[in-house]
Amino acid sequence: MKKLFQNKFWIFAITLFFVVGIIVLNYFQIMDSVKDSLYFVLLPIQKISFKIGDSIAESFAILISIQDLNRENQKLSEEVRELTVKNVKTEELKRENQALKEALDFTEKEEARLIPGNISGLDPENPGDFVIIDKGREDGVEKDLAVIVSDGILIGRVIEVDKRSSKILLITNTESRVSGIVQDSRARGIVKGEHGLGLRMEMIPQNALLKAQDIVITAGLEESLPKGLIIGKIWEIESSDNEIFQKASIRSPISFKSLEIVFVLKNK
């Protein structure tokens, strides 16, 4: 027996057998309690390391981007002016809309419940594709629910739920598909992720009038994705007479790299 264990290949084979055993146990969800305990220990450490990393990155970013800040500041001031005008108009439209709703006896949708969660982990291999949040089954998170940031900006959907944590598939993942509408022209299309880097809207009818800076929102065709969540703004339009559909690259108003607090959207 001793000789058997002295042979390194036997030990290697036993280790592999053990590993396969663990994978099988995980498949039948017997490993869940072990995973939960490890999450419990690792996630706070990860949070701290993220904060340290962020503060180091921020100090570097400040040094590099002072010039950019000036330019951005000017741009933002212009945008604020435009938005103020828009806001006044929207307020008027809101009132008008409210009156019409009442007149038509429109029933309001049930309010959704927001489950706040902190980003506590990134995928070690594909950081732009998935994130882990510190809210799970215990907090009411369910598979396929939409995940947003506070302003109603869509960031992804829940793909895996554990007891105290959940894994989120970001909309920037290549496999993410969300049906979207361009707010102004009401043109529909499919918003896909681009390797964790950006977003792209496809299948937009050729006759749809698109322009840069148009806002794209969710169409509400998916069961768990309500209508009207902001996906992003059109950045560039790709249109050709030979093609049946147009394409557009979309920029989300948020930086997926600096996500901190997100909300899981759950119907009451």
């Binding site: 990860q46 390391s49 993220f50 340290i52 990393g53 990155a57 982990g121 990134l122 995928d123 070690p124 291999e125 594909n126 950081p127 732009g128 964790g196 790299k257």
Partner: peptide, 10 residues
């Protein structure tokens, strides 16, 4: 790895 992957993906 998990901390740095945010700034130097993949």
């Amino acid at each position: 790895q998990i901390t740095l992957v945010k700034y130097f993906p993949s």
